[in-house]
Design a protein around this nucleic acid. Structure first.
Lengths: 227, 227
DNA sequence: GCAAGTACTGACATTCTTGTCAATATCCGA
DNA sequence: TCGGATATTGACAAGAATGTCAGTACTTGC
């Protein structure tokens, strides 16, 4: 050992009192893994406790690291929030467009409605996005722009295709847009006030399912009535 | 002026350096008035900047008082929030039930929809309520319970009356409940994501109006189709 | 093995926010 | 006009939160 006496008891910084802590074997993750874990923890905190539960110290404790580690990976708290927003947006986009694209020939609204509601309710995606909208963030990010635009395009394409098959006139594009908007609004609203309202009305979990079906039927009736 | 030399330069506490501040003539409001002003300012801050903009110092500056004055009137920040919630709930209740009760014979959904949307959008009522729901407050307040219950009752009564006039069968109560829920959800959703979505879709203010009308028509069609 | 790169940490600095307190100014009734 | 009640204030206290920094320990390429 050439460079001796480096971690003995010399310098003075770690002190190292007799036989106390076994040093706890520091763990080291890849940067990517660490970022993922941190975002996961932040996401859950946000979903469970709302915006005020998003504190670096808490998140760090959840992950099992010190809070400066978070700063190391995300620069600042704001950076963390930005990253969380970006990831949530991407997940939402995949979830929605994926569902819309997969069962290509499915014209039944109920399935799509279900997907939208679940995509927004699960893991508190809607709550997260609502919070960021409420705090005035993402005003210029305009990620939502693309998502909404793509979805309306996809929906309109399906309706036109369906109309051609049936020999009915092509549907109005604004009508398609309104359907998408209503669904989005309703899903967001449900994610936020849904539980309260359902409780107030004495609806159980099954009642909520009935509500979604009822809503899907409402839209289906509209679709079939021809604009 | 018998008791002279009271605000001269004596005691030592206010220091009163030569000719600086003219003492600024302290204003004194009634407790009620002060509370009202404070709540107004808090409400606006919340609507404009979201939950993070609700700081005692800021609110105090808006009103033109010092922040301990707020504590004096509301005990604590939490007390202020509670009071704000209570007032907002009461306003919302009056607004919604008032509209529903006034034009007694009006069966047209469009007007009611318009009222609901406006009541929730104006002054950021929905944003405020959303925030408090997101932060997990008002879980047991259950003020919302009463409001929702009353509204469904009122709506159902109107539908039954209308059905009797028309000789049609009485409407299903759950259907009425679902209509109310959808409207509430959609209005909340619009209050939060509405602007973003509309922007994304290239809708202007007029487009939003068209959307609301479209939604009202959707419900009207449903009402007239008999459940 | 060695050295460079970097994930990670403890301690500290800074700033912000709620809340307390004693003192003061204003209103209002006697 | 006096005196009590109370709305209001400045100064301070306590705590929490983000951010900085120098140093430590793990990994990986040579």
């Amino acid at each position: 050992m050439s460079s001796v006496a480096k971690n003995s008891a010399a310098k003075a910084v770690p002190v190292a009192k007799s036989a106390e802590k076994p040093a706890a074997k520091r763990v080291r993750r890849t940067a990517e893994e660490a970022r993922r874990l941190i975002l996961d923890a932040a996401e859950e905190r946000l979903a469970r406790q709302g915006p005020e539960g998003l504190r670096l110290q808490d998140i760090a404790r959840d992950v099992g690291i010190s809070h400066p580690a978070i700063l190391h990976h995300f620069e600042s708290r704001e950076g963390l929030v930005r990253a969380l927003i970006a990831r949530t947006n991407a997940q939402l986009r995949d979830s929605l467009l994926g569902a819309l694209g997969s069962d290509a020939a499915n014209q039944d609204a109920a399935d799509h409605i279900g997907h939208v509601f679940e995509a927004l309710s699960d893991r508190g995606t809607a709550r997260l996005l609502s919070w960021l909208l409420l705090t005035g963030r993402a005003t210029e990010e305009s990620d939502a722009h693309n998502i909404m635009g793509e979805i309306v395009e996809a929906l309109q394409a399906k309706r036109e295709e369906y109309a051609k098959d049936q020999g009915t006139p092509a549907p109005d594009k604004e009508d398609t847009l309104f359907i998408a908007m209503l669904t989005a609004n309703a899903a967001f609203g449900e994610a936020i006030v849904g539980r309260q309202l359902a409780e107030a009305a004495g609806l159980d979990q099954d009642g909520i399912k009935r509500f979604r079906k009822w809503f899907a039927k409402l839209l289906n009736d509209h679709l079939e009535s021809g604009s």
